[in-house]
Amino acid sequence: MLSFLNELKAPITNGLLLGGLYGIIGIGLSMIFGIVRMVNLAHGDLVILASYLSLVTMTFFPISPLLTLIVVIPVMALIGFIVQYCLLNRVLGKGMNPPLLVAFGLSIILQNLLLLVFTPDARTLMTSISVKTISLGSFLNIPLVYLVDFIVSLITIALLSRFFNRTYMGKAIRAASDDEGAAQLMGINTRTIYSFAMGIATGTAAIAGVLVGMTFTFYPHTGPEYLIIAFGVVIVGGLGSLLGTFLGGLILGLAQILGAHFLGAGFQLLCGYLILLIVLTFKPTGLFAKG
């Protein structure tokens, strides 16, 4: 029994750490879904765009990928703001489909743009972090990059939650997501607020993109894979709270790695989807949905 638990230590730790990364991948999709009530089909591609932006920054300045965030976050936030302000805001309030189509179009444009500029070659954000492992106690070696992913994700969630609870703009974003009409009556320009919200969401996509690039290889068309992970996180975690989304990520990560551990690597994705199916069946609003 004890050895069985000992054997599980590694997959559980890895699953949770990977889940942290999943959480940060999902948070941007969850935010925009919850606030603007729009499914941003381009979210995964925005994550990968950030990976490439980091790559470009690294060719100009020989710095660690984590430091490229200083450049990548503002650029991605600006892109998000502009996309929302100039494109998506125009089609809001016109039903479910128009924003979906615009986002889908954006996704296709991004993928082909990346293909054109960067060729279909596999890339990674090279850093010494990616190859090191650290040992936590005896018998437990984990990839350092997983730990970094987890910690960065956790910090991001904490900062976001401070932003939403402490600042006027954060509260205004929540107010607009509660009742757009009433928010306007308070003097809130909800369209601008949505643009800021999207800027913040793509800012989190920037962080996700850099972490993904440090952890895995990426191609111009990897975006949809991460969109699916983000969907998974949102379905498991439910809408309404940042922490819920983060926990959703942890559960998804855990399910995948434990599945791979018991059934073999080929079952990793399947086990993730099984969890989605179970959650959708028994609690379609997600495990940690509020209200």
């Binding site: 006027y168 509260k171 205004a172 929540r174 107010a175 509660d178 009742d179 009409g181 009433a182 928010a183 009556l185 308070m186 003097g187 809130i188 309404g240 509020k290 209200g291």
Partner: peptide, 24 residues
């Protein structure tokens, strides 16, 4: 400023946060 029909308070904001939105 308007008090709309049906009150339209922000349910997931606290009372104080609702008031703060009034002076946005």
């Amino acid at each position: 400023s308007m008090v709309p029909e049906g009150r339209r308070i922000f349910p997931r904001l606290t009372v104080l946060e609702n008031l703060e939105m009034g002076c946005y």
